[in-house]
């Protein structure tokens, strides 16, 4: 389903990034990096106009020729970015939402793990498993 899933810390450094094994892994890193500006823009818009979205889910950040990039920001300003293949048109907004929800739930578990140091990269196997499940479902 997803081709790249990333978790970015409050201070904008990567906590976790995983992409499908292809030759150009770097490209995904660039894509995620670029998306942070859009995320920033969307968050700073909050509170300025009435009736704006105060949801954690930010929706589609930007489409590129081959990929669609979706974003989600937790209340603790941790960003989740999911990149999906544009050719996968069957993917609904709801499914993306539920993916983010799962990711967030798992991330919360990681944060509440006393052996995890907040701010460190994520090494949890459970989290890894959740991410793998989302990547595998590629049609």
């Amino acid at each position: 389903m997803a081709v790249c899933i990333a978790v970015i810390a409050k201070e904008n450094y990567p906590l976790y990034i995983r992409s499908v094994p292809t030759q150009n892994e770097l490209k995904f890193h660039y894509t995620v990096h670029t998306s942070l500006d859009v995320v920033e823009e969307k968050i700073s818009a909050v509170g300025k106009s009435l009736g704006d979205q105060r949801e954690l889910y930010l929706g589609l950040l930007y489409p590129t020729e081959d990929y669609k990039v979706y974003g989600y920001v937790t209340n603790s300003k941790v960003k989740f970015v999911i990149v999906v293949d544009s050719s996968n048109t069957s993917l609904r907004d709801n499914e993306i939402r539920s993916m983010f929800r799962k990711l967030h739930n798992s991330f919360t578990d990681v944060m509440c793990n006393p052996f995890h140091n907040p701010g460190d990269t994520i090494q949890s196997k459970a989290f890894d498993g959740i991410v793998s499940a989302m990547m595998v479902q590629t049609g």
């Binding site: 920001v73 937790t74 509440c112």
Partner: peptide, 20 residues
């Protein structure tokens, strides 16, 4: 401090974003 960090992560999971 550590407990607070974990706890707030869990509590704010389903709330909307804070205004200020």
């Amino acid at each position: 401090f550590r407990v607070g960090q974990g706890l707030i992560e869990r509590l704010t999971k389903d709330t909307v974003r804070f205004k200020d």
